[in-house]
Simulated scan of single mutants.
Amino acid sequence: MGSFSIGHWIIVLLIVVLIFGTKRLRNMGGDLGSALRDFKKGLSGDEANPQLKADPPVGEKAQSETKRENAE
């Protein structure tokens, strides 16, 4: 009486799928996985911020190049 059998878990799983739907569960699983990955990366001491190394968006890059050309 204290533990659930496999039948109980199947019923619970079916109810969860009916309530949330498979697409939403997949999205939640992906979000949870990326959150855990980021958490592990933070614990490992990898402090490199990928956003700082990224190229600026095309519009900003074009504007900065135009400013440089006008300055010359």
Rank of each mutant, 00 (worst) to 15 (best):
S3E: 05
S3I: 01
S3P: 05
S3M: 06
S3A: 05
F4L: 14
F4N: 11
F4H: 12
S5A: 08
S5Y: 02
S5H: 08
S5T: 12
S5I: 09
I6Q: 12
I6H: 06
G7K: 00
H8E: 10
H8D: 10
I10C: 02
I11R: 03
V12G: 10
V12W: 04
L13R: 10
L14F: 08
L14P: 00
L14M: 12
I15M: 07
I15P: 04
I15H: 01
V16W: 03
I19L: 14
I19G: 08
I19M: 12
F20S: 03
F20Q: 06
F20P: 00
G21H: 00
G21D: 02
T22R: 11
K23P: 05
K23V: 10
K23N: 02
L25C: 01
L25V: 02
L25I: 07
M28A: 06
G29Y: 02
G29C: 03
G29E: 03
G30T: 09
D31C: 03
D31V: 00
L32W: 12
L32P: 01
L32I: 08
S34D: 14
S34G: 05
S34R: 15
L36Q: 15
L36E: 15
L36W: 15
D38P: 01
F39N: 00
F39K: 12
K41V: 13
K41D: 11
G42R: 13
G42Q: 08
L43N: 13
S44C: 01
G45H: 04
G45K: 07
G45W: 07
D46W: 04
D46P: 00
E47N: 14
E47W: 10
E47T: 13
E47S: 14
E47K: 14
E47H: 11
P50Y: 07
P50N: 05
P50S: 00
L52A: 09
K53E: 12
K53M: 14
K53G: 14
A54N: 08
A54I: 09
D55V: 01
P56W: 09
V58T: 12
V58K: 13
G59R: 10
E60K: 10
E60I: 06
K61Q: 13
K61T: 02
A62M: 15
Q63E: 13
Q63S: 12
E65W: 10
T66Y: 13
T66K: 15
T66V: 13
K67D: 08
K67V: 11
R68H: 06
N70Q: 15
N70Y: 10
A71F: 11
A71M: 06
A71L: 10
E72Q: 15
E72L: 15
E72M: 14
